[in-house]
C-alpha cells in the first residue's frame, strides 16, 4: 500500500476550508464579518485554482472575485450601515422544500459529474495547432484576445453596461434629501497615508502595466492588470473621501476612458474587416501589436470602469458643486 499523497491531503484540507468559509460567510450574523470572510474565501479559491494549473483564473479571482467584489461589499455596508431584512422571509416549509430540491439537484449533479469522463482532448490540440498564428505566446491570452476575441469584446461591453446602469440608478436618487454617496469617514488622509499613496500609486501603475504586458507570454493580461490599476484609482479616490476629482475635465475624461476599450477593440475589428480579412481577423504579422494595443486600452477601461463602479455615483459638474457647497457637511 502506498502512503497517501501529501498533495492530496493539502487538496482535501483546502477544499474543506473553502466549503466551511462559504457557509460561514453566508450564515454569519455580522455583515462586516461576512464581507471579510467572503474575501478570504475568494483568496483560498484562487489558491485552489493555482493547484489546478489555472494561474490566470486564480489571478482574476483574487483581484476581481475577492478584491473588487470585497471592496464593493465593504463600500456598500459603509453606506447602508448594515443589512436590511426582507419584511416577508421565505417560510420555513418552503425553505425546507427548496433545500431538499437543491440537495437532490446537487447529489444528481455530483454523481453525474463523477460518472462522466472528462472529454479526452478538449480544445487543447485546436489551440496548440493555431498558437503560431495567434500573435502571442500565452494560450489563455490567445483565446481571450484572438480565438474568442468576440466574447471578450462583449465582456468589456457588459462592464460598460454596468457603469451605465449604475449611473442610471444614481440619477434616480434625490441628492438634496438622500445621504451623500461619498465615504468621508474612510478618507486616506494624514502624513502617513500621504506618503504611502505617493509610494504605492506609482508602484500599482507599474504592476498593472507589467501584468498587461506579461499577458502575452505568461499568466496575466488586461483584466488582471486593469484590476490592479483600478486599485490605484480607488485608493486615490479614497484620498479625496471617495469622490471624483472636482474639475470640469473629470467627466469628459472619464467618459473617454470608460469607452476606450470598446472603441479600440471594435475599431481594430472593423479595420481588419476593411483590410480584407473579416471582422476581428487580424493579419498574423500585425497580430501581436494589435493585441497589445487592445489589451492596453481594455486595461485602462477596466480600471476606469471598476473605479466608477466602486464610487457608484457620477462626477458632479463643477458648476453644480459650487452651488451645493453650502449643503455638504463632510469633514
Amino acid at each position: 500500500m502506498s502512503p497517501p499523497d501529501p498533495y492530496l491531503l493539502l487538496d482535501l484540507g483546502l477544499a474543506a476550508t473553502i466549503l466551511v468559509l462559504a457557509l460561514a460567510a453566508l450564515r454569519q450574523r455580522d455583515s462586516f464579518t461576512m464581507a471579510v470572510v467572503f474575501i478570504l474565501f475568494g483568496l483560498l479559491v484562487a489558491l485552489a485554482w493555482v493547484r489546478l494549473d489555472a494561474p490566470d483564473v486564480a489571478l482574476a479571482e483574487a483581484a476581481i472575485g475577492a478584491g473588487v467584489t470585497g471592496a464593493l461589499l465593504l463600500r456598500t455596508l459603509r453606506h447602508v450601515g448594515g443589512e436590511r431584512r426582507d419584511p416577508a422571509p421565505v417560510p420555513r416549509v418552503v425553505a425546507g422544500m427548496l433545500g431538499l430540491s437543491v440537495a437532490g439537484f446537487a447529489t444528481l449533479g455530483g454523481l453525474a459529474l463523477m460518472a462522466t469522463p472528462r472529454h479526452g482532448t478538449g480544445l487543447i490540440p485546436a489551440v496548440a495547432a493555431r498558437m503560431d498564428q495567434s500573435g502571442v505566446e500565452h494560450p489563455v491570452t490567445a483565446v481571450l484576445l484572438n480565438f474568442r476575441a468576440y466574447d471578450t469584446l462583449l465582456e468589456v461591453v457588459v462592464v460598460l453596461a454596468a457603469v451605465m446602469a449604475v449611473w442610471a440608478i444614481d440619477r434616480t436618487i434625490d441628492r438634496a434629501a438622500a445621504p451623500l454617496p461619498y465615504l468621508p469617514g474612510v478618507a486616506l488622509r494624514g502624513p502617513i497615508a500621504g506618503a504611502y499613496l505617493r509610494l504605492v500609486l506609482p508602484a500599482l501603475a507599474l504592476i498593472g502595466a507589467y501584468l498587461v504586458w506579461i499577458g502575452a507570454y505568461s499568466p496575466g493580461g488586461a483584466f488582471q492588470g486593469g484590476a490592479v490599476l483600478a486599485a490605484a484609482g480607488v485608493l486615490s479616490a479614497l484620498a479625496r473621501g471617495g469622490r471624483w476629482p472636482r474639475t470640469a475635465a473629470t467627466m469628459p475624461l472619464l467618459r473617454g476612458s470608460l469607452v476606450l476599450g470598446v472603441v479600440v477593440f471594435t475599431g481594430v475589428g472593423i479595420w481588419a474587416a476593411v483590410a480584407g480579412g473579416g471582422v476581428l481577423h487580424y493579419p498574423p504579422a500585425q497580430a501581436k501589436p494589435l493585441i497589445l494595443l487592445i489589451e492596453a486600452s481594455v486595461a485602462l477601461s477596466i480600471a476606469a470602469t471598476l473605479t466608477a463602479l466602486f464610487l457608484g455615483h457620477m462626477p458632479q459638474p463643477a458648476a453644480r458643486i459650487a452651488l451645493r457647497k453650502g449643503t455638504t457637511n463632510d469633514t
Partner: peptide, 21 residues
C-alpha cells in the same frame, strides 16, 4: 523582495489608519 516591501508598507499604513480611526 518587491512583494514583501509593498505588503509591509501596506500593512503598516493600514494598521496606522485602523488605529487612528
Amino acid at each position: 523582495a518587491v512583494i514583501w516591501a509593498l505588503v509591509a508598507v501596506s500593512a503598516a499604513t493600514s494598521g496606522h489608519m485602523i488605529a487612528r480611526h
